[in-house]
């Protein structure tokens, strides 16, 4: 084919241009993300012995995972923590996002960027900052000691501290997702509802909440998934009582070197994440969300 007819062919079929632009990124993600996930699915049915993987297919890893009380506890702890953190982020995030979108005026971009920014400092430095405040030699407890009071035990290496850390880490996601939904929401619809006799609370339930459910649902998923698999926060803030499945999983790939069992844990966590997505996805109906595209201001 010479250049001219090639060009004519691509003009005839926009599909070719679509493929040329989209394929590199899509293939990159499929190869870089999906294949490794597939690999751990395979490994989860294998066996590790002295840091080597052997292709002896069995369900042993899953039997261990579901059978041993310790792992069950770790998983339930991760699940309950993730659910609680998601709910707390939701309850705290909604009024804040609503306030910014509704009353932020010309400052709303600034306000929301200020909420999103801390997320980008990275997990470890944010945990360090939190420890500077909450830890045994952190500001709060040192302050209490200075004035002769006992330190607050609840904040030192407890599940509460770990949960607080997770809220601290992920609430920016929730606020941003809800905000992005609310800035595309036409607040005049509320006036219409009020004129037609709806009280503010009723108008919220009938109009605002359903029309912004998509942003809320995405925010919930974006908080739930990293919380479920979190390993770093409980490690540094949680103490011995807070060991999560993620921490244990990290250990299988680190110190103990039992990759097959670790893979099974990874697959299990991924399956639960998918389950969460599949539970919430059917509730999102684009046609009923008034979705018209996105805008940042």
């Amino acid at each position: 084919m010479n250049g001219m007819s090639l060009r004519a062919a691509s003009r005839r079929r926009p599909g070719l241009r679509f493929a040329a632009l989209v394929a590199p990124g899509a293939l990159f993600i499929v190869i870089g993300l999906m294949l490794p996930l597939l690999a751990i699915v395979v490994f989860s049915f294998w066996r590790t012995e002295s840091y080597e993987l052997y292709a002896d297919w069995s369900l042993d890893n899953y039997r261990t995972l579901l059978g041993e009380a310790a792992y069950r506890t770790f998983f339930l702890r991760s699940l309950v923590t993730a659910i609680l953190v998601t709910v707390i982020c939701l309850v705290c995030g909604w009024p804040v996002a609503y306030f910014i979108a509704r009353h932020g005026g010309r400052y709303r971009l600034l306000l929301v960027l200020l909420l999103a920014a801390p997320f980008f400092t990275g997990v470890i430095l944010r945990i360090a900052a939190l420890q500077g405040l909450l830890g045994p030699v952190g500001l709060i407890n040192m302050g209490l000691t200075m004035v002769g009071l006992p330190p607050i035990e609840a904040l030192m290496y407890t599940k509460l501290a770990a949960g607080l850390g997770l809220v601290y880490l992920f609430i920016p996601f929730m606020v941003t997702a809800i905000y992005l939904s609310l800035v595309n929401f036409n607040f005049e619809l509320l006036e219409v509802a009020k004129i037609n006799g709806a009280r503010p609370w009723r108008a919220f339930i009938e109009i605002t909440w359903p029309l912004n459910w998509i942003g809320t649902a995405i925010g919930m998923i974006l908080v739930f998934i990293p919380c479920l698999a979190n390993a770093v926060t409980p490690r540094f803030l949680g103490g011995p009582e807070a060991t999560s499945l993620g921490m244990s999983l990290a250990g299988q790939f680190g110190e103990t070197g039992t990759w097959a069992l670790g893979s099974a844990m990874g697959v299990f966590l991924f399956a639960v994440s998918l389950l969460a997505i599949f539970c919430i996805a059917p509730t999102i109906r684009l046609k009923r969300s008034g979705f018209t595209g996105t805008s940042l201001t």
Binding site: L35, L37, F43, P226, A250
Partner: peptide, 17 residues
């Protein structure tokens, strides 16, 4: 899709792969 996969999972699965 990558937004919905936790960092830890990306890390260990890429390591394993």
């Amino acid at each position: 899709a990558p937004l919905f996969v936790a960092d830890l999972l990306i890390g260990i699965s890429v390591l394993a792969f």
